[in-house]
Amino acid sequence: MDTLLLLLPQVLFDGLLLGFVYAMIALGYTMVYGVLELINFAHSEIFMIGSVVGIEVFRSLTGYVPNPYILLVVAVILGGLISGLTAVGVERLAYRPLRKRGTKNRLVPLITAFGVSFVLQDLVKLLEGLWHNEFFLSMKNVGELEQSVTLFGIFIQYKSFILIGVSLVMLGALTWLVGRTRLGLAIRSVAQDPSTAGLMGIDPEKIISRTFLIGGALGGVAGVLFALQYTTVSPYVGFLPGIKAFTAAVLGGIGNIPGAVVGGLVLGEIETLAGTFLPVLTGGAFGTEYKDVLAFLILILLLLFRPQGLLGQIVKEKV
């Protein structure tokens, strides 16, 4: 038991890392849900594309630019940009035509999202196959970023500081954008009532597109940081983190931005704690792999007992 307690700070820290990744992905789910009431399951693949871009930047540019910090900046910008633009493209090609037809059935866009997911996975698989003939992509040695320090008994790599730092900056920027800018106000009003937002001079289609761009960019940056931290990705790497982040978004209250962050962090911690302690506490009856089961068990319990999520509230609106 004493060893378990000694492990605790490290486990909590690792949970935090995973939590930030989930939080950044969850924001994409929650923002798109906010404006369209659509669970954009293709968002997993937007994240995956970011992770692949991250790895490709390091592996193709390391020879020319030896400084890993510059590479990191390039990877974050490119990953965010390419993922964001892909999300915009997906919205344009797959979801907008459905809205234009006035499809009322909510299942149609949902199933479309799954279709888009497959298309993106296979597209990346094809491109990577043609380029490197590889399925699993590994991060090149990132030099200085691999170095570590030990603080309060926690082993921390430089790249983990970067993960947390970049996440915090992105979350801060998003909070400012949504809460304080004209675009943020437009996003919030379209989320509540798109046709009345139109009466105010806001073009809801444009705002929806911007929302996909922002959510996609956050997912892409999360992908880059994920690749840096966990080093191996593949065209199918998006599925599990994606669906966990979706769980996190529901956990925090889907459509609720602070909720997505809280949900991500909580889920990251629960999962990491469970992965470490379940096998020990159950005498090996439940192995580490049950951490995933636990994450989805939470989703099911939540949907049963608190469907509005931790921070979500059932909105009363007077008519």
Binding site: L185, S189, Q192, T196, A197, M200, I202, V315, E317
Partner: peptide
């Protein structure tokens, strides 16, 4: 001014006015 008012219930009064001044 639409039927049923259609104000933005989750925005503050001031933010509602800001949306009104969007253009």
């Amino acid at each position: 001014v639409p039927e049923g008012r259609r104000i933005f219930g989750r925005l503050t009064v001031e933010e509602n006015l800001d949306v009104g001044a969007y253009l």
